[in-house]
Design a binder for these strands. Structure first.
Length: 253
DNA sequence: TAGGCCATCTGGTCCT
DNA sequence: AGGACCAGATGGCCTA
């Protein structure tokens, strides 16, 4: 509809707001012209009715054309700002997501960003639970109760050796479908920022492999998987229904 | 060229 | 009343 306003933003998710420009385009487009015509017709009708009533002009509650235009522009501007803020938040979310960043990498779409974020949170939660379980197995419940700080440090230090959770595969599939990966196993990780996401190597980001989700155990973990034998790790346990649904969603993307 | 993604406008609804 | 939020409509840009 609004081609001029759209061209000014250059498809950035957080374009610079040029209110006057968009307003100009708004004034120039057909919808607004039709809107003005309708508004004029309505005001004329109202005037006729008031004259017919013969009374005083009672248009205090009914704004005139200019007021309606100003109101409309204000509302549009607010909505634009709201959407820009939303996009900024989306960009912030993209920045902390474990996918390849860079100019050569296509930006994640909004829906992909949200799905990826959800998967990422689920994966981290599962990993944390798994690490707690592992530490509990190693040190025993009493030892774990004695030093929770040690537990915490053990969790953080051993996180780098986490088996790849099936949820991570959905990250792979999502990223694989939306962008080319910057990080490979041979390339050094980029310098971490204060809010930098876990390194790609942490998530074992290699070449995206499509269809791995169909067989999560395929590259499941450092656990050894024997045919016909149940795996002891909780990461190999069936995922919640919601997660499975999300997997299919992500795969369909 | 079709489809995906996006920005913007717009009207409705709810809340303060 | 004014603002926030939401969803539908519309049209532009980009990619396969």
């Amino acid at each position: 509809m609004d081609s001029d306003a759209g061209s000014t933003c250059s498809r950035s998710s957080s374009p610079d707001l040029v209110v006057d420009d968009s307003a100009g385009s708004f004034f120039s487009n057909k919808m607004f012209q039709r809107y003005c015509e309708e508004n004029r017709a309505e005001s004329e009708t109202r005037q006729g009715s008031t004259e017919r009533c013969g009374g005083k002009t009672k248009n205090r509650s009914e704004p005139n054309k200019d007021e309606v235009q100003d109101l409309r522009l204000k509302v549009n501007s607010r909505e634009r700002k709201r959407m820009h803020d939303l996009n900024q938040a989306m960009d912030g979310l993209r920045e902390v997501m474990p996918y390849a960043h860079g100019p050569s990498v296509r930006k994640l779409s909004k829906i992909s960003t949200l799905l990826l974020a959800r998967n990422y949170i689920l994966m981290l939660s599962s990993s944390l639970e798994e690490m707690k379980k592992l530490v509990g197995d190693v040190y025993g419940s009493s030892a774990a109760a004695q030093s929770r700080s040690a537990t915490h440090s053990a969790i953080t230090s051993t996180a780098a050796h986490l088996p790849l959770h099936p949820l991570a595969q959905s990250l792979h599939s999502l990223v694989g479908t939306t962008s080319a990966l910057q990080h490979h196993s041979s390339s050094p990780p980029s310098a971490p920022t204060p809010h930098s996401p876990p390194a790609a190597s942490f998530l074992s980001f290699h070449t995206p492999v499509q269809g791995l989700l169909k067989d999560p155990l395929h590259l499941a973990s450092s656990y050894r998987h024997f045919p016909g034998m149940p795996c002891p790790c909780t990461l190999c346990q069936p995922l919640p229904a919601t997660t499975s649904t999300l997997h299919s969603l992500a795969m369909n993307k």
